[in-house]
Simulated assay, not measured.
Amino acid sequence: MIETDRLVLRRHGEDDFDALHALWSDPLVIAHVGGVPLGREQVWHRLLRYIGHWAVRGYGMWVVETRDGAFVGDVGIFEGRRGLGPRFDSAPEVGWVLSPAAWGRGYATEAVLGALGWIEATHGIDRTVCLIESGHRPSIHVAERAGFAHYDAAEYKGEAIVLMERRRPAAGG
């Protein structure tokens, strides 16, 4: 578990299924993440993938909640093996998806920075990557605030994306 100033990041469990389904079936949420709301079966498979990634890699996605227990969304670090070239596929990928009620509050940046601090401290990972739909300015802004820099553009599943990377800040910097 990770605690930030306003948030708690914890591993997913079976009890998170309904909140995940509400998140991943919301048309506003998925507009920049594939564009198609996920059904119950797809969300169940996603939940199992989240849990399994931890078993295989020792890191993965977290549930993001406010300190009073309100569900905010997902954030985490994973291996997507997306076939976007060695520069992208050689590093763990950072991802975040928050519910519309949480947008505009700085929660995404806070959660991403919490996850990055944890993975860097516990796994010694120096470089992470992310991909974002090229027109999704709010997510690009979150990535930039978390220290990611644009290094390329590509197409993924028919969508124009930007590829970004982050290197662990030097000690004391």
Rank of each mutant, 00 (worst) to 15 (best):
V112D: 06
A115P: 10
R82Q: 13
T109E: 07
H136Y: 14
G95M: 03
H141S: 14
A101G: 08
I132G: 03
V94Q: 02
G69W: 10
G114A: 00
R87Y: 12
W96E: 00
A115R: 01
L131G: 05
H136I: 05
E93H: 12
P92R: 01
Y107M: 11
E65Y: 09
I132W: 01
R137L: 14
R81V: 09
I119N: 03
E79S: 08
G117W: 04
G135I: 07
A121N: 01
P86F: 11
D126L: 07
P100T: 11
L116P: 01
G73M: 01
G85S: 00
I132L: 03
E120R: 07
F88E: 02
L116D: 00
H123Q: 15
G69C: 11
E79T: 13
S99A: 15
D68T: 10
E120F: 10
G114K: 00
E120H: 10
G124R: 02
A115F: 06
A102F: 04
A121V: 02
A101L: 05
H123L: 12
I132A: 09
E79H: 14
Y107G: 08
E65V: 04
E79D: 15
L84S: 08
H136R: 11
G95S: 10
H136W: 11
V72S: 06
R81W: 14
I125W: 12
T122R: 13
A121S: 13
V142M: 00
D74I: 03
L84A: 08
G135E: 13
E144C: 04
E110V: 10
E79V: 14
E79Y: 12
A108Q: 04
D89R: 02
G80M: 15
G83K: 05
G114W: 01
V97K: 06
D68N: 08
S99Q: 07
W118D: 14
G95F: 02
L98W: 02
G85Q: 01
S90A: 15
W96V: 12
D68Y: 02
R127P: 05
G80L: 06
E110C: 09
S134W: 13
R127A: 06
G114M: 00
V97R: 09
A102V: 08
G117T: 06
G73L: 00
A143F: 05
V129C: 11
T109C: 12
C130S: 09
W96T: 09
P138N: 01
R105H: 14
W103E: 06
G83L: 05
D89I: 03
V97I: 15
I77L: 15
E144H: 11
H136K: 05
R67D: 10
F78P: 04
W96Y: 15
L113G: 08
V94A: 11
D126S: 12
H123A: 10
E65L: 13
D89T: 02
W103K: 07
C130E: 04
G69E: 10
F88K: 07
T128M: 11
G104E: 08
P92M: 04
E110G: 05
T128V: 15
L116E: 01
R67C: 06
V75E: 06
E133D: 15
E110M: 07
D74P: 01
F71V: 00
E133L: 09
D89Q: 02
G124K: 10
L131S: 04
G104Q: 03
E144I: 04
E144P: 02
E93C: 13
D89V: 04
R82N: 12
I119P: 03
A70P: 03
